[in-house]
């Protein structure tokens, strides 16, 4: 069980547009567009869910999807060096 919680960094401004998140790094002007699944994960992070809880929620929404755990950890490991999120 991964009980780690990640928070969205304070220099990131974001909004949900048509179910998809758009996030802007206010420090360097780079912006990011997320697909639906990534947007779900992002919003769960914003609700202070642990990684395990997020995986469970995604699995509930999309039953029998084998790759959820790996996919969530991959996207988290992409967001960390981009300084979109950090460990709490």
């Amino acid at each position: 069980m991964n009980s780690q919680i990640y928070g969205i960094n304070s220099n990131i401004s974001w909004k949900v547009l048509k179910d998809n998140v758009v996030a802007v790094n206010l420090d360097n002007g780079n912006y990011y567009t997320f697909n639906f699944t990534a947007s779900l994960i992002w919003q769960y992070l914003d609700q202070n869910k642990t990684i395990a809880e997020i995986e469970q929620l995604i699995n509930t929404q999309f039953p029998d999807t084998e790759t959820v755990e790996k996919d969530v950890e991959e996207i988290i490991s992409y967001w960390l060096p981009e300084k979109l999120i950090s460990k709490k």
Partner: peptide, 24 residues
Amino acid sequence: SKISENAGVIRIYEKPETKKHDAM
């Protein structure tokens, strides 16, 4: 499997992806 229905919208699971756009 791999399909979610919410408020009449059916979604198929897609791998989470983020596209980065560089600032001008």
